[in-house]
């Protein structure tokens, strides 16, 4: 049995078999897994905000969809992942509170998902599977050995994508 590598909020890390990688309680944030299935090299980033260029204080690259995915890509390539083999799986981006408002500030979940997809498309990394949106939190676990992403939510059966 391998160990479970933890990724916190606005954090990223890499993972090789037999270990697995997890992030707990994703709300409006998005968990992005980058994965090279041939070499079984994987990494996960837990992004909070869509766009680093809109924010002045951005020392933590893992906080944003654009810079977080770039940094994660750099890290797994450094481990020997093949650039052309890379695929991704994403989860999260929920709207936790049913705000009755048009305030865009409070709909950050769907903006995060859009930003992640735009960045992955720009980098030509296909999204193999996703479990995004809706209104509940998710804990995700990725197993580089099998390429499975497990999604656990409160009061729902565990899902594998």
């Amino acid at each position: 049995m391998g160990t479970m590598v933890k990724v916190g909020m606005a954090d990223l890390n890499v993972c090789l078999p037999p270990d697995a990688i997890t992030t707990l309680g994703l709300g409006s944030c998005v968990g992005v897994v980058l994965y090279d299935p041939t070499h079984k090299i994987s990494g996960m980033v837990h992004v909070m905000l869509p766009d680093s260029t809109k924010i002045r204080n951005n020392e933590n690259v893992a906080k944003f969809a654009d810079t977080g995915i770039e940094e994660l890509l750099r890290k797994i390539l450094a481990l020997g992942a093949s650039r052309s083999a890379l695929v991704s799986k994403i989860a999260g981006g929920a709207q936790m509170f049913a705000f009755r408002t048009d305030n865009e500030m409070l709909k950050v979940g769907s903006r995060n998902v859009d930003a992640v997809k735009a960045k992955l498309a720009e980098l030509k990394i296909p999204v193999l599977a996703e479990d995004t949106g809706l209104n509940y939190g998710r804990t995700i676990e990725f197993y580089p050995d099998t390429g499975n992403l497990l999604i656990k939510s409160v009061g729902k059966p565990t899902k594998t994508i």
């Binding site: 309680g25 924010i55 998710r138």
Partner: peptide, 27 residues
């Protein structure tokens, strides 16, 4: 204050909402 919004879920998921607000101004 707005009306109260309620959610019952994992603490991390619920706290992500205020965390994101802070994320805009600070680490």
């Amino acid at each position: 204050a707005s009306i109260p919004y309620m959610a019952i879920d994992m603490a991390g998921a619920i706290l992500s909402v205020p965390a994101i607000e802070f994320g805009k101004i600070s680490d």
